[in-house]
Design a binder for these strands. Structure first.
Lengths: 169, 169
DNA sequence: GAGCAACTATAGCCGCAACAATATTCCGTG
DNA sequence: CACGGAATATTGTTGCGGCTATAGTTGCTC
């Protein structure tokens, strides 16, 4: 029977990863929506807010998100129109411009974050006891490190953000 | 410092999940591309091939993938045009139509699967020893079950697929 | 068996994002 | 200093997919 192929433990493994991710993402999106934010806008807000000076060059923002540079241009367009951030010319390089979070943007982030953390707790970390959580995250970290999205898509870990900013500052 | 918020272990946890997923997905997509398949097309082929009669009603296909019904209509349009599947009228309900994998579609799947499994091995399951893998998958499964994408988006686990097909057969 | 609500697939419309092309700026080389 | 290649941001084009509306079908109720 060919059927067996689909029960392959490898297929099941990615299925679990994909479905856990999809389910969580859906919960996130629903909550973001309550605050008139799209997932990518939240990501942009987070990246900017954690960066020194609450700002990032367009290119760096693209590197840290899952967006292309043109994608960043348009997201920043929308967010600037909505007052969540503003562009600022880069004094040292006239090709570049910074995206800077506005007070409004930070406020929005403050409004979203508690609920966001709550969702993570309720549907992810809180589902596992300490040991299981640690084991799961260790596994995910090893996969993440192997597959290296950090180099291009930007890591959620604290370190790389500053590093990227510093490289191009 | 506000900076601490972004180092919150909860944020880091989802970051790992998201990045592992993104990295893996990128590898998958690259390999699919070598065989002129999009990720969603691969998903459709898998779902159909694992279903009894190699066919599924449009609605069920939508339920098992991450697509809306209109999304399924268009993907099936494209795949039918490319000869990977064909539509078949449902004899018992004239509203419905089946999407049926063609021989070409099955061949395509056979061509893609070995490489796909290899990628999973190389970048996911093979990165962890047996115990760590088991622990990681257990954690993911618990999150998956909690967040329940299986009810709407379709589960990769063997069971629900048949069940859905049987419900509507 | 007529009417009505639910279901199924599809088409219209829209927004989002990637790719490619373009304009501007920077920098190394001669 | 002039030139050429790299880098940066933006815009045009394209394709995908969700939401809504629509047409056809079914089955339930009276």
């Amino acid at each position: 029977m060919d059927q067996n192929v689909f029960d392959d433990p490898r297929i099941t493994a990615v299925g679990l990863l994909v479905e856990a991710h999809a389910g969580l993402s859906a919960r996130f999106a629903a909550q973001f929506d309550e605050h008139d934010l799209s997932p990518v806008e939240f990501e942009v807000l987070m990246r900017l807010a954690r960066s020194p000076g609450n700002q990032l060059r367009m290119t760096d923002l693209a590197a840290q998100t899952s967006l292309s540079t043109s994608g960043v241009t348009r997201v920043v367009d929308r967010m600037e129109r909505d007052g969540l951030l503003c562009r600022r010319a880069c004094p040292s390089d006239r090709r570049s411009s910074y995206a800077v979070v506005t007070r409004t943007g930070l406020d929005r982030l403050d409004a979203v974050l508690p609920g966001h953390l709550r969702i993570i707790e309720d549907w992810f970390t809180g589902q596992l006891d300490a040991a299981a959580l640690r084991a799961t995250l260790d596994g995910l970290r090893r996969v993440r490190d192997a597959v290296h999205p950090g180099a291009t898509a930007g890591s959620t870990d604290p370190a790389p953000a500053d590093e990227t900013a510093a490289t191009r500052g």
